[in-house]
Design a protein around this nucleic acid. Structure first.
Lengths: 263, 263
DNA sequence: CGTATTGTTCGACCATGTCAAATCACCCAG
DNA sequence: CTGGGTGATTTGACATGGTCGAACAATACG
């Protein structure tokens, strides 16, 4: 019935699944009418209407000139999640500084359920805006510098779990898709303390990422990215890693300091 | 059973409501265990578990050291909504400039279901960070300069509807809570083309807001806010209104220009 | 070891989510 | 103004499946 993974025998609420199907369809496909939704999801219009009424009453869906779209309550809930992340709270200012110093994009990423979410993006006045690169969207961990950093600091069980769940998906010809090659890369990352992205997520874009360590484990990453024309040579080899690692340290210190004071 | 408004006889999906109850509780109260949630929402733990399993499988809830919290998919959906707003797409750069020129906070606000949502906040290096003021949260329209601007440009039916739905809630002693006083204020706003906030949303904070007009009606607002100690005198009376209105015009032109090109 | 607490499974009941069909609202073409 | 077509909404009836309680498992604590 549902086309979603993990539709296993487990307990679950099917009607909640349909509401989520509706919202996800509206986010990916754009605003739709009731009949269109009913068509796509293969359910009766009356049923779709019932769901949309519930969602609309709660602010999670909105009718806008005869079409429905997800409501801004998603934005409200999402923002509140973001602001509860220590990485975001303590990371934005240092990230802004790094961006100002380098003129490139600087990112903050966290991992949830084996996928990377970019919580913050800053800077990049000189850079070309590449549409796909934006905050909020999910990324597979093997394809980005930030993702590889997090993978490098997982124990083996976690690593297996993540790779089993999401695989080694290829984004560009340079994406690491071989398990052994990935293991070697992760070892290198552990040794040097940071990761490089050699046009593995998008052609023409290189980057460097460093882990931000919390009291137990990595709480997220800082990364910097820009066009391969600028990110190269000694700058790419040693200067940027140094800058990014320093920024990660600043965030770590702010974070751990704040935690101690919390008590 | 439910404590929510509009629990009228209309058609709706009750189990979706409970899932939304769960998520909203988790956002406002913070991470909770299953039994805690069951307690608060007055339902069986097994039922709460079934909901959380569904939400977790879809990334809309996450278990984090024995407690559940809303998942980052809310952030993802919310961000995608935000980025579809023309006000956001064309407004951030002009807002940044205004913030750089004045050193105060600059905001972009849109209205959904009669409530104001701030999509963007920028600047304010000199200003004190006031916790409640953040993007994403909903505001009643009568209590802010931005809100009043939108109300001023509604037709009477809409105005009645909004005020009936959300009332004239007071935030500070200066909040306009009288219907006639509000009508007079809205008339003034229409005449002068912008609105002032005289410590009506928060004590010690003043602001100015201007409407951004689209092809049919107001698509949102730009506003500027800061401490009453700085926002006063001639600056508050004429300079700021001029700057904010200019910024609104810049956004409007970018917006309408872009729309024409879309064809 | 027991005891308390929370998470999870299971079975059964009946609320309710679902669909089909009928009705209504709206828009155009003629 | 009329009629036909499209999409939204209402209604009623059926069976799915959402719900709860009770039993069970897992864990923590003394």
């Amino acid at each position: 019935m549902s086309n979603h993974p993990a539709d296993d025998g487990q307990t679950g609420i099917k009607s909640v699944d349909t509401s989520l199907d509706i919202v996800e369809t509206l986010t990916t496909e754009g605003p739709m009418t009731i009949t269109e939704l009913a068509e796509v999801l293969d359910r009766s219009p009356s049923n779709v209407l019932a769901h949309l009424r519930t969602l609309e009453r709660r602010g999670f869906a909105v009718k806008e000139n005869d079409r429905y779209r997800p409501g801004l309550r998603y934005y409200e809930v999402g923002n509140s999640i973001k602001e509860n992340y220590p990485l975001y709270v303590h990371g934005t200012d240092p990230a802004d500084e790094l961006a100002a110093d380098t003129g490139e994009y600087v990112w903050l990423m966290v991992v949830e359920q084996g996928l990377g979410y970019y919580l913050y993006k800053t800077g990049g006045e000189d850079a070309v805006e590449s549409g796909a690169y934006t905050t909020g969207s999910r990324w597979r961990l093997n394809a980005t510098a930030s993702g590889k950093v997090v993978l490098a600091h997982m124990d083996d069980d976690e690593l297996d779990e993540v790779l089993d769940a999401h695989g080694l998906h290829s984004m560009t010809p340079n994406t690491i898709t071989d398990r052994d090659a990935l293991e070697a890369e992760l070892e290198t990352i552990r040794e040097q303390g940071f990761a490089r992205d050699r046009e593995e997520a998008a052609v023409g874009i290189r980057g460097v990422a460093a882990p931000v360590r919390g009291l137990d484990g990595v709480i997220g990453t800082v990364s910097l990215s820009g066009p391969a024309s600028r990110i190269e040579g000694e700058y790419f080899q040693s200067k940027l890693p140094q800058l990014v690692t320093e920024t990660a340290d600043i965030i770590r210190i702010k974070h751990n300091g704040a935690r101690a004071v919390d008590r």
